[in-house]
């Protein structure tokens, strides 16, 4: 397939996944804050950090108090078009990628993402946001789920589809890792195994941010920080665990490598990352070691993406080399 189209497939699904992930994060945080009484700086600022938007947000809202302004943070992460990871920014870029490769995606996919974009852009979305915030974020999640489901059920499961899934899974692995890491950043490392009630609520919120609460409770009867971390990091059968996402991503990347006859560098890098996460699956990581592991995973995932770019999106041209 055309390299540029492959790149658009990859990013289309990364952006769609981001929109969903952001909506989930904002929704869970709202409900979490109703359950517990937190110091102001721990209420909304962590969400900005997980999104990697500290700098841009501070630039636009230099006043320190803005960090604690829940409405402002939600407004920014939902509606700010200059924020590339805001809900509207992610949907804009997803749709822009879809528009660019309309000929390569199914008609149903296009109508799904385009209809969603117009819903957000043309007032209906904003009205729901004002009236029933929970329902709004729910609708965003459902719209992305619909888009992903339509994709799964209407595309040929060949190379373009593989690039879409690859993008979605790598994005999801990174999101889970970042959400887990924020615990370290702002909530501070867990003090003991016997977590306080507030801390327990935080862990539940963390699980909910990854739609993982029910699944977790099927594996563990008790809420404990180390168990939650291990579950989100390495539970092989949970669809949002870092390990699961990376392993599935490797599956798609291997298929791509096989069908195109190229791209060993990126597959090898990803295979090594998957193996390294598998090896540590038994460890009960908390605190600084957990932070280090998550940082390593996030950085290596970025290396993998760069290798995918070199292998498939912007490959050197053997013919040019001959000519030179």
């Amino acid at each position: 397939m055309i390299s540029r189209v492959a790149e658009c497939c990859f990013w289309l699904h990364r952006h769609a996944e981001r929109a969903e992930s952001m909506a989930r994060l904002l929704r869970v945080n709202r409900s979490f804050l109703l359950d517990v009484n937190l110091p102001e700086f721990s209420r909304w600022w962590p969400v900005v950090i997980v999104s990697g938007e500290q700098e841009r947000f501070a630039e636009q809202h230099p006043d320190e108090s803005a960090r604690n302004d829940g409405e402002l943070v939600q407004q920014y992460l939902t509606w700010d078009e200059k924020c590339p990871v805001s809900v509207i920014g992610s949907v804009y870029w997803a749709r822009e990628n879809a528009r660019t490769i309309r000929d390569a995606i199914s008609l149903e996919m296009w109508e799904s993402i385009n209809g969603f974009w117009h819903w957000l852009r043309r007032g209906q979305g904003r009205r729901l946001y004002g009236r029933d915030r929970d329902a709004f974020y729910q609708r965003v999640k459902e719209s992305v789920a619909l888009f992903q489901g339509v994709c799964h059920n209407t595309m040929l499961h060949e190379e373009p589809f593989d690039f879409m899934r690859l993008g979605m899974l790598l994005e999801r692995a990174g999101q889970t890792a970042r959400i887990l890491d924020v615990k370290f950043h702002l909530l501070g490392p867990s003090t003991s195994e016997a977590d306080s009630p507030v801390e327990a609520a935080q862990w539940v919120a963390l699980l909910r941010s990854c739609s993982a609460e029910q699944s977790y409770l099927r594996r563990h009867r008790r809420l404990a920080g180390a168990h939650v971390a291990r579950f989100l990091l390495s539970e092989p059968l949970f669809p949002r665990s870092v390990f699961h996402c990376l392993e599935r991503a490797l599956n798609f990347l291997s298929r791509i490598s096989k069908s195109s006859g190229r791209g060993d560098a990126s597959s090898e890098k990803l295979a090594a990352l998957v193996e390294s996460v598998r090896v540590r699956a038994g460890e009960q990581l908390t605190g600084a070691p957990l932070h280090e592991e998550l940082t390593r995973i996030i950085d290596t995932t970025m290396d993998v993406c760069a290798a995918i770019h070199r292998d498939y999106f912007d490959p050197s041209l053997p013919l040019d080399e001959q000519a030179a």
Binding site: S260, G261, Y312, L317, A323
Partner: peptide, 24 residues
């Protein structure tokens, strides 16, 4: 058929090629 942008194409030896994930 594929939709291509100008940057997807290049000419070598008076022949037009398209850049694909499987090479030109």
């Amino acid at each position: 058929c594929d939709l291509v942008c100008p940057t997807d194409l290049f000419v070598h030896d008076d022949t037009v090629f398209v850049k694909t994930t499987a090479g030109p």
